[in-house]
Write a protein that binds this DNA or RNA. Sequence first.
DNA 1: TGTACATCAGTGAACGCGCGTTCACTGATGTAC
DNA 2: TGTACATCAGTGAACGCGCGTTCACTGATGTAC
Lengths: 205, 205
Amino acid sequence: MLKRGYHHGNLRQALIDAALALIETKGPAGFTLSEAAKQAGVTPAAVYRHFAGRDDLIAEAARQGYVIFAETMQCAYDGGQPSALAAFEATGRAYLAFARKHPGHYIAMFESGISVNRTADLAAVALHARDVLEKAAQELAQLIPPEKRPPPAVFSAHIWALSHGVVELFTRGAPGAQSPYLPEDLLESGIGIYLRGLGLLPADD
Amino acid sequence: MLKRGYHHGNLRQALIDAALALIETKGPAGFTLSEAAKQAGVTPAAVYRHFAGRDDLIAEAARQGYVIFAETMQCAYDGGQPSALAAFEATGRAYLAFARKHPGHYIAMFESGISVNRTADLAAVALHARDVLEKAAQELAQLIPPEKRPPPAVFSAHIWALSHGVVELFTRGAPGAQSPYLPEDLLESGIGIYLRGLGLLPADD
DNA sequence: TGTACATCAGTGAACGCGCGTTCACTGATGTAC
DNA sequence: TGTACATCAGTGAACGCGCGTTCACTGATGTAC
């Protein structure tokens, strides 16, 4: 953040970062353009040099989130290679790790109410993120005999839903947060049982 | 709704219903006390005869949601008796059915940002709803050999998370809504694979 | 049955507030000569 | 290296709006006699 007197230096990103911090602290409804501007040390009007308006700012925050999200999962996937099983499990764990590490992004992406189809750019990067998970599922599905193999899209949807449900219900003071189990453990054991159901893990523990 | 001229008759419930309709239509942020009053044909100030304020209205909507939620699942559970497996699967299906049939309640409960611990009353009814699912899980867990039986709380948390994730991601125009699969089918197949992983369903399909 | 009265649900006007957004402007910055 | 100038990022004042909330009030309702 090279602050060069009158001009800010990198206000655009500073505004996004401020928005993310606000969303993380006060929830998706707590974010306001004015407050984000204030946090960045700037007048609300200055925001309009860089964004079309309030929603455009959130959308950009979400977009950056999807980029990091895809990168995180891709990286985990690569790290688990060449074992399809290890790659898949690492990808699942990366989902929760992302939600933990980037709560502002996560909320902007999934809880702010902005549509993923708002811009073509946002839709593309969101689709790419989904493809990473689906590719991991597809590769793993090869190990299942074709006649009892579910479509990879179904497979990955299950894992995505389970991961998302764990995040929403058992992190950040959600309804199930009084549970004595760590979200990480819940997700790992849940995926374990699921993969056993697919015959990808031995039945005996 | 017996409208007796000047006095409304049952304004309290009319306000809750209006709030639910608004939440369903415009999302959790779209709800305003003033608009709910207007929908009920009444001045905003009239709301304060029945509720402490805006948040109190949403909390009451959520509370009623938890009551219906618990009833719906309890009813499905009872209908599946005496088979533990049938009762459990019916309870899982009831979760999604509730979200479909009462989207306003569902959003008020899980997406409005009001804490379940806001009042003792709300916390109690939310806990009761969770207990219904947990009881179904507990009973079903009896069929698993003790040494490979997961704690029922973990078991039910998995199902809850999977159900919630499916609702959030694959209904109501969410990120995964362009998926060609019905949420009902996704949830059913997911639970099926999961139960197979626990040895509660035969491995061959 | 008719009248006087207490109750209290809803009115209507007003409030302060913070929001997103606009506009003419200003002055720091980087460039051309 | 020094000066004149064009650019354009950010200012500051202002706007209209709808929000949640308050208050003194009013008049429909149900009850007591």
